[in-house]
């Protein structure tokens, strides 16, 4: 039976193996390649999307478990937090190679949605699953703080 869900607000149907990872469907079937494949085993965070607004590793999300839910990828994420994060990221040039960054951005938005003023400890804990091989961690942390402050002062 086909799995029906929302992908960036649009109806999506997938009729295939229910074990197929959501990441496969996003990239290969929907053609949205902003969400990256890094490890496929929940170790790197590159594939992070939002499932009903919460951070979720799409590489270990069997497609049948998203039936009736709403999936948001880097292409579709929007709203004041997303805008604040985007501006903060651009302002201090967070990315280096960029490969991990859509996952970092999605995780950061998911973190800020729950913790509008995260402490260093909150950022460490919330971003612990997002690896950056270019080690942009210091800028990521700064950008999350800048985004939090921008949102508060806005």
């Amino acid at each position: 039976m086909a799995v029906e869900f929302l992908l960036n607000g649009k109806h999506m149907s997938f009729d295939g193996d229910p074990d197929t990872p959501l990441l496969w469907v996003i990239r290969d079937h929907a053609g949205l390649t902003g969400t990256k494949y890094g490890c496929g085993i929940a170790q790197c965070g590159a594939c992070t999307v939002h499932l009903d607004g919460k951070n979720r590793r799409s590489c270990v999300t069997p497609i049948d478990t998203v039936a009736g839910k709403s999936v948001t990828t880097i292409e579709g994420v929007s709203g004041p937090i997303a805008e604040a994060v985007q501006k903060a990221w651009v302002a201090i040039d967070v990315p280096q190679c960029g490969f991990c960054q859509s996952g970092q951005v999605m995780s950061a938005i998911g973190l800020l949605a729950q913790k509008p003023k995260p402490t260093d400890a909150d950022i460490d804990a919330g971003m612990a699953g997002n690896i950056c091989r270019c080690a942009t961690y210091v800028r990521i942390r700064q950008a999350i703080k800048d985004a939090a402050n921008a949102k508060v002062s806005a």
């Binding site: 999300t61 995780s107 804990a125 919330g126 971003m127």
Partner: peptide, 30 residues
């Protein structure tokens, strides 16, 4: 990855257990 229990045992904000652990076992795609 390094995870912490958070306030209620369900993980830290943004890095909940459910960030990776879904409603059923998920076989690796690769």
């Amino acid at each position: 990855p390094p995870v912490t229990r958070g306030p209620d045992g369900f993980g830290a904000a943004g890095m909940e257990c459910a960030t990776c652990h879904g409603p059923r076992n998920a076989p690796f795609g690769n």
